[in-house]
Computed example of a mutant assay.
Amino acid sequence: MQVNQFQRLSSFQAAEKIIDKFFPDCEGAILAGSVVRGQENPTSDLDIVVFDQKLPASYRESFVEFGWPIELFCHNLKSYQAFFKSDCERARPCLPRMISEGVVLKDKGILDGIKKEAETLLHAGPEKWDIATIKLKQYFLTDVLDDFIGSSNRSESIFIAGTLADLAAEFTLRTNKRWIGTSKWISRSLAEYDENFAEAFTQAFDLFYSKNDKSKAIHIVESILEPYGGRLFEGFSLGKNQ
């Protein structure tokens, strides 16, 4: 989304005006996202979470206002809890993270409690994988690793590598009871877990993408699998009657 950055308000001023214009009677509002984390870039938008008891249901809306791309996440005073539950079940705490780290724009006395709910969930981490889930994920990670090792087609290998990195990052984070993410949040989640490991992980795949050298990517995925017995193929079964 291209906007005129020389004619727009500051992020906080724009967010306050959004609330005043569209939600003057809301119970609470929070500005979240890259602008409050100090990670703003030229394409950053404003993520605003709104709590309005008059809303019949939650919704999400995107538009441009006051020179900014705006993403609204609107809830009544109960609907956000279903999103908390869903986010935690998939181990991607988007809404809890936004609420926990966000800056208050407006509050009629409801946000302390909601922020504490979010912080409690984030601190607890996702549900621990059971042995069956680990074996299933181990098998599919092995399968993609074997495809990566065996592929001699550069075009195919590029896409296999993307899948391999996603699965390896997920396996690392979930077996260590850490939150996962997608896109840029894969890198951020790995760094939150272990900055040195995240750097090595990134460098391993960068070596493949830049020089077609698979060695470090293969090594790091094998090191991820090693504590669980290494690659898993022989003896794996899914859905077979005992």
Rank of each mutant, 00 (worst) to 15 (best):
Q138W: 02
Y139V: 04
L141V: 02
D146L: 11
D147F: 08
I149T: 03
G150L: 06
S152P: 07
N153P: 11
S155C: 12
S155V: 15
E156I: 02
I158Q: 06
F159W: 15
I160D: 01
A161G: 08
A161W: 00
G162I: 05
T163H: 11
L164Q: 02
L164T: 01
L164V: 04
L167W: 15
L167K: 13
F171M: 10
L173V: 05
L173C: 09
R174Q: 09
T175D: 04
T175C: 06
T175F: 14
N176Q: 10
N176W: 01
N176D: 13
K177Q: 15
K177D: 06
R178C: 15
W179T: 15
I180C: 14
T182M: 13
T182A: 10
S183L: 09
K184M: 09
W185N: 14
I186F: 05
I186D: 12
S187N: 14
S187K: 14
R188D: 15
R188I: 09
L190A: 09
E192A: 13
E192R: 12
Y193I: 04
Y193L: 08
Y193Q: 04
F197C: 06
A198T: 05
E199R: 12
E199A: 14
E199Y: 13
A200E: 13
A200Q: 15
F201D: 05
F201C: 05
Q203A: 12
A204N: 01
D206F: 05
L207M: 13
F208P: 00
F208G: 00
N212E: 13
N212I: 06
D213T: 02
K214L: 00
K214S: 01
K214P: 02
A217E: 01
I218G: 00
I220V: 08
E222I: 02
S223E: 14
E226L: 11
E226Q: 14
P227M: 10
G230T: 09
R231S: 10
